[in-house]
């Protein structure tokens, strides 16, 4: 059984490169022939999570596992952690600084969007240590 694994190092504070990982995952999924909805869900969720990593955590790592039934993504960072996950999950809640908002990010839709576009979302976070986010998108039979 073939399993495609992809690994990305996401540099912090470099907006010119933010979106590289999700873009590359998209290229893989399209070439594999996944249905467009699956591709869209994965890419939108991963892009949001990738941007979060750049804005809040100074970068991190992304591991993606693609198998025919589901796509699993693990995003690990060593940033400040999320003090109140429940609050962060609320639409419109944002802690993004002004310079980030000026770029059009930080509208407080990141985490809610990730949840909306994935079938499962788990956040493990510890203040001062970092955050690990596990995402799963199922492929409809």
């Amino acid at each position: 059984m073939s399993l495609i694994t992809l690994h990305y190092d996401v540099p912090g504070d470099d907006f010119t490169r933010a979106g590289e990982a999700s873009g590359n995952v998209k290229t893989h999924l399209k070439k594999l022939g996944f249905n467009p909805t699956v591709v869209r869900n994965v890419v939108i969720a991963l892009y949001e999570a990738e941007i979060n990593m750049v804005i809040h955590a100074g970068g991190g790592e992304i591991d993606v596992e693609i198998d025919p039934d589901q796509i699993r993504m693990v995003l690990t960072d060593h940033g400040p952690g999320i003090p109140d996950v429940e609050l962060a999950m609320q639409e419109g809640y944002s802690t993004a600084p002004d310079n980030v908002r000026a770029l059009g990010f930080g509208a407080g839709m990141g985490l809610p969007n990730i949840k909306k576009y994935t079938d499962d979302m788990q956040i493990e976070t510890e203040i001062g240590v970092g955050t690990t986010m596990r995402l799963r998108v199922d492929v409809p039979a």
Binding site: S2, L3, I4, K30, K31, L32, G33, F34, I66, P68
Partner: peptide, 10 residues
């Protein structure tokens, strides 16, 4: 696409 069959494409 690499293949019309997803598993073969993988």
């Amino acid at each position: 696409k690499l293949d019309t069959d997803l598993r073969r494409a993988m």
